[in-house]
Structures are given as C-alpha cells and as structure tokens.
C-alpha cells in the first residue's frame, strides 16, 4: 500500500489558492510541486497595500500564505510556467518551461486571474491620458506613501470608475468581478485619509457589497469620509488644455448628464481568467464557462471538480472571489483531492 508521500500533486499557481492548498495537502502528507510563473509566491496579494473590509495590511496575509508553503514536502518552482500536461491512464506527466518532467497523481489548477487590460476600454484613454490609472497603480501610490498626479502634485479631485471590463458586453465580459466595488470603497477611504482636502467621486452601476462588513464600509465611506457615490457609467474621458481630465457621466439617479473635471481617474479593472489558465484548458480539453473562467463540474456541490478526472480547481480560475472565499475554495479542493487519491488507492488494492 503506497504512502501518501509516494503520491505527487502538481499545483499550478502559487497565489492565495495555490499556497493554501499546497500547505494543507503537505500537512496531509502529500508531496507537492508548486509551479509559479512569477518571481515570488503570493499572487495578486503582492499588489495590494491594505485589504478590505478591515484594512489589514496585505503583508499579514502574505505572511500567512508563505507560512503555509514552508514545508519540506513542497517544492516550489518560481519563474516557471507549464509547457504541457499529458494524461496517461490515471497518471499525469507535467512538463515545465524549464524542461522538468513531473509525474503527478493529481493536478490542482490554481492559475488565478489576469487583470483586465483597460486599454480595451478605449474611451477612458488609459495609456494615453497621463492621469488615468488603474486600481492596482493606486495601490502602488499608497505603498509609496504619496498620491500625486503626473504633474507631481496631490489631486484636488479624484474620480473612481467602477466596472471597468466587468458587466460589459462591449468587451465580452458579462460577469461581475465582485471585488472591485468594495475595493473602490476601500481606496476612496484611503485617499480621503491621506488627502483630507481631496474630493472623491465613485461612479457605479450597482454597489455590490456582498461580503461581511462590506456594507458597513460603504456606509462609513459616505458618513465618515464624505465620499460621493454617483450611479452612472463614465462614457468618456478626455484631457483639456490645462491637462486636467474631463469626464462625461450620466447621473442616472438625478436623471441628467454630468461633466466633471478631475485630476486623477482611477479605473476599477475587473478580472478575467488568466491566459496561462486558458492555455492549459486548451491543452487538456477542459471546459470553459460563458464567463471565460474554468467550468466546474457542478455549480453547487462540485465546484472544485473539472470535466477531467484527476484535475481540480481552486480559487479565482473558476470565478471572481475575494481572499476569504478563495481560501475556503482551496481548502475544499484539498478535501476533494484527498478523497480522490484515497479512492484511487482503493481501486489499486482491489
């Protein structure tokens, strides 16, 4: 009867889901190869300054994730991508871009998401107008301790555009990216904290405050921090002769068009299935849902399972989710993998 250590699981992606699952599977006694295309583990959490809803430093969660993978049974390969995955009977053979050959009993795809490229929403002029930035670039400014415009001065007015690349038929994304609304609320508060004299306007379609304490944060943003929330989509941004941004919005509650000058326009970019994830899907003939993410076997009780036996999913490669839900999803994947490998063992014994 083989020991668990004889069984090898390849996990693709060392972000929140990958690290969580790797840690737990290693504690169960499995041998793990953790493949990460970036130069460090932690995934997109590395981008963030503080996390919603409690504004804890992202370093704390990163520390937790790194602690999870600090296990001799986990072998992490950084700056490495998947070249191919071949399934033969019940076993997999994974080839990395560095030419490593990794036989595996199960594969966990924790490939995460790619951020929406805002250049595709040409009307906002990202990459053209100097002071149109993304939510991730704003986090960089928080990290640096100063929020400055391209002219090197603090902005007097900031506009935050929700749903950039989400719920948008024009770019082919019908799905809600879920985390952008609360990110916008968090970032609006952070701006007001750092620059109390700066006005902040959030332009939204709906405020989707789905998680615990999100609604409370939204209320705090309005009551304590005076953030202005305007229901309406920004139709276009342009630059005036002074280099200030001019935005056009329809205020759908007031029922009238609105034109406003802002010094900084922050785009709440949505999330899409990662390119590397899509490539693996093609390679293994895994189903992709209409939202572009991996299609799970069952939306209610099989959302870690793929259409291929032995291939599992964890985290945002299946749908948009926050860190809390990603960790829960990864832990659930561990249970599914463990149960699958045990059932395989039983088959061998029989």
């Amino acid at each position: 009867m083989p020991e668990k250590q004889d069984e090898h699981i390849v996990i693709v992606g060392a972000g929140t889901a990958g690290c969580t699952a790797a840690g737990q599977l290693a504690r169960e006694g499995y041998r793990i190869s953790l493949i990460e295309k970036e130069s460090k583990p932690g995934g997109k959490v590395n981008n963030w300054y503080q996390l919603f809803p409690d504004r804890r430093k992202s370093e704390e969660v990163l520390k937790y994730l790194l602690g999870e993978i600090d296990n001799p049974l986990i072998n992490i390969s950084l700056n490495t991508d998947i070249d191919s995955i071949i399934k033969e009977k019940k076993k997999f053979l994974v080839t990395t871009t560095h030419g490593e050959l990794l036989p595996a009993d199960a594969i966990l795809l924790a490939t995460g998401f790619d951020l929406f490229n805002p250049e595709r929403k040409e009307e906002y002029g990202y990459g053209i107008y100097d002071d149109v930035i993304t939510s991730v670039e704003l986090e960089d400014k928080f990290h640096s301790g100063a929020i400055l415009t391209s002219k090197g001065v603090p902005p007097k007015r900031v506009g935050i555009v929700h749903c950039v690349g989400s719920r948008d038929e024009k770019v082919g994304n019908f799905h809600c990216s879920k985390v952008c609304c609360v990110t916008a609320v968090k970032q609006a508060i952070e701006i007001r904290e750092m620059l109390p004299g700066t006005e902040v306007f959030c332009f939204y379609m709906d405020m989707r405050m789905f998680g615990p304490y999100y609604e409370e944060l939204y209320r705090e943003a309005q009551e304590k921090w005076g953030v202005n929330f305007i229901r309406g989509k920004v139709s276009e941004a342009s630059e005036n002769i002074e280099g200030r941004l001019l935005i056009k919005v329809e205020d759908t509650l007031a029922g009238r068009p609105l034109k406003m000058q802002v010094d900084l326009l922050v785009l709440m970019i949505g999330i899409e299935n990662s390119l590397s994830g899509k490539r693996i899907a093609e390679d293994l003939d895994l189903k992709i849902g209409i939202n572009g993410f991996f299609s799970v076997l069952d939306n209610h009780y099989g959302n870690n399972l793929s259409n291929m036996e032995g291939v599992f999913f964890a985290g945002t490669c299946t749908a948009a989710m926050n860190i809390t839900d990603t960790i829960s999803h990864a832990r659930a994947a561990v249970v599914e993998i463990d149960s699958y490998l045990k059932s395989q063992k039983k088959e061998v014994e029989v």
Binding site: I128, S238, N240, L246
Partner: peptide, 27 residues
C-alpha cells in the same frame, strides 16, 4: 484606428506636416 482614437484623418494631417489637436469634445 477604431472609434475612439481614429487614425484616418490624423494620419493624413501628420503625413502632410500638420499637428492634430486633441480637445475635450473631439469625439
């Protein structure tokens, strides 16, 4: 050049020595 920043006329103006203005109500 697409819809938001079309290049058709910009290309002509620049090719013939002129400078194109990008003003707020351009679109």
């Amino acid at each position: 050049g697409g819809a938001e920043f079309p290049h058709t006329l910009v290309g002509m103006i620049e090719s013939w020595g002129g400078e194109v203005i990008d003003y707020p109500e351009r679109r």
